[in-house]
Amino acid sequence: MEDSIHLKYLAVGPNDLLWGMAVNSVGFQNVKAGEPYPPQGHPSRYLFTRERGRTLDEYQLLYLTRGKGTFKSASVPNSVSVQKGSFFLLFPGEWHSYAPDSDTGWKEYWIGFKGPQMDTWVKNGFFTPAKPVWNVGLQSDVVELYMEAINTADKQESGFQQRLSGVVSHLLSLAWFRARNEAFSESAQQMNKAKILIADKYNTIRPQEIAEHLCMGYTNFRRIFKDYTGFSPAKYIKLVRMNHVKEALTNTNLPVNQIAFDAGYENEDYFFTAFRQHTGMTPLEYRSFTQGK
């Protein structure tokens, strides 16, 4: 493989998209300081200038491992900085422009793809044109995945598009996961402490006690905890309690009322109602089902 640039453009058949996602292009390019951008060698539909930009009919996920530059798009009209350790996602039908700074250049990896699976993730709000850039730092596993995609595209063995689809899914999940945790870098330790407290004292602890233990105001704690976990503290505690109940029903023969009490349910009627709402079954029906009776 050439060290400065490696490009692979792929044909996508209708059956490939039935898998849910298919890859159109993959590669890397190492642009030195002062070199023109983008380099020659791309098909005409991929070429653009910083001033004119371009619009693609596919998604592209780019990752920088050296240098810095700028990015803007129809949804982000003011230029934002991108640098080594940055992901940025291009959306089909969305005008965009990006380029390295002339005094640094950059090294970029990219993979272009399309398909209904990605469309669904966008529709459900996991990825949005309004927030296309994530700074996650230099990650060796990310580079390894891009190189795996490049090697797979080079060989084009039977079923290679399905394998490439898996690599894209892995890259997207890493980008989303790392960016999300980077956003919580200052509060992650406190939220993990909260989760440990709940795991240790799920049957007695109240959300307000957790906030007090962390020296946080409850309103602020509740907001950050819900953003971090997807659940309010009270809902999270209920889920942990219910999971302990289900585990005890499956793995022991303890009486149902004792299991409920041990999990923190003091009102038996409330427990039975909550359990049926959660599982669609009574506790005894759940026990019979999970124990194979």
Results as ranks from 00 to 15, higher is better:
1 M>R: 10
1 M>N: 10
3 D>P: 13
4 S>A: 13
4 S>Y: 14
6 H>P: 01
6 H>K: 13
14 P>F: 00
14 P>E: 00
17 L>I: 05
21 M>Y: 01
25 S>M: 08
26 V>E: 00
26 V>D: 01
34 G>M: 12
39 P>C: 01
40 Q>M: 10
42 H>C: 02
42 H>K: 14
42 H>S: 13
43 P>Y: 01
44 S>V: 13
45 R>C: 07
46 Y>V: 02
47 L>K: 06
48 F>H: 09
50 R>A: 12
50 R>V: 12
56 L>H: 06
57 D>G: 05
60 Q>F: 04
63 Y>G: 06
64 L>I: 13
65 T>R: 10
67 G>A: 05
67 G>P: 01
73 S>P: 07
74 A>C: 06
76 V>H: 04
78 N>T: 13
81 S>G: 09
82 V>R: 02
86 S>V: 02
88 F>E: 04
89 L>V: 04
89 L>W: 04
94 E>C: 09
94 E>D: 15
94 E>N: 11
95 W>E: 05
95 W>F: 11
95 W>D: 09
98 Y>F: 14
100 P>H: 03
100 P>N: 04
102 S>G: 14
107 K>N: 10
107 K>S: 10
110 W>F: 15
112 G>P: 00
115 G>K: 00
129 P>S: 03
133 V>C: 10
134 W>D: 12
138 L>S: 11
138 L>G: 02
139 Q>E: 14
141 D>M: 06
143 V>Y: 08
145 L>R: 14
146 Y>W: 03
146 Y>M: 03
146 Y>P: 06
150 I>T: 01
150 I>Y: 02
150 I>A: 05
152 T>F: 09
153 A>I: 02
153 A>N: 01
154 D>A: 14
154 D>E: 14
157 E>G: 12
158 S>K: 15
158 S>M: 12
160 F>N: 05
162 Q>C: 01
163 R>P: 00
165 S>M: 08
166 G>R: 06
166 G>S: 02
174 L>A: 07
180 R>S: 10
183 A>K: 09
185 S>C: 02
189 Q>F: 06
192 N>M: 15
193 K>T: 13
193 K>C: 06
194 A>F: 05
195 K>G: 10
197 L>D: 07
198 I>Q: 08
199 A>W: 05
201 K>Q: 15
203 N>L: 05
205 I>Q: 12
207 P>N: 07
212 E>D: 15
213 H>A: 15
213 H>C: 08
215 C>I: 12
218 Y>E: 04
219 T>D: 15
221 F>E: 07
224 I>C: 08
226 K>G: 04
227 D>G: 12
228 Y>V: 00
229 T>E: 08
230 G>Y: 02
239 L>Y: 11
241 R>G: 06
242 M>W: 10
244 H>T: 09
245 V>S: 11
246 K>C: 06
249 L>M: 05
249 L>Q: 02
250 T>W: 06
250 T>H: 07
258 Q>V: 11
258 Q>R: 13
259 I>L: 05
259 I>Q: 03
263 A>S: 15
266 E>V: 08
267 N>E: 01
270 Y>D: 14
270 Y>Q: 14
273 T>L: 08
278 H>N: 14
278 H>P: 03
278 H>G: 07
279 T>H: 02
280 G>L: 10
280 G>F: 09
282 T>L: 03
284 L>G: 00
286 Y>R: 03
289 F>Q: 10
290 T>W: 12
290 T>N: 13
293 K>G: 11
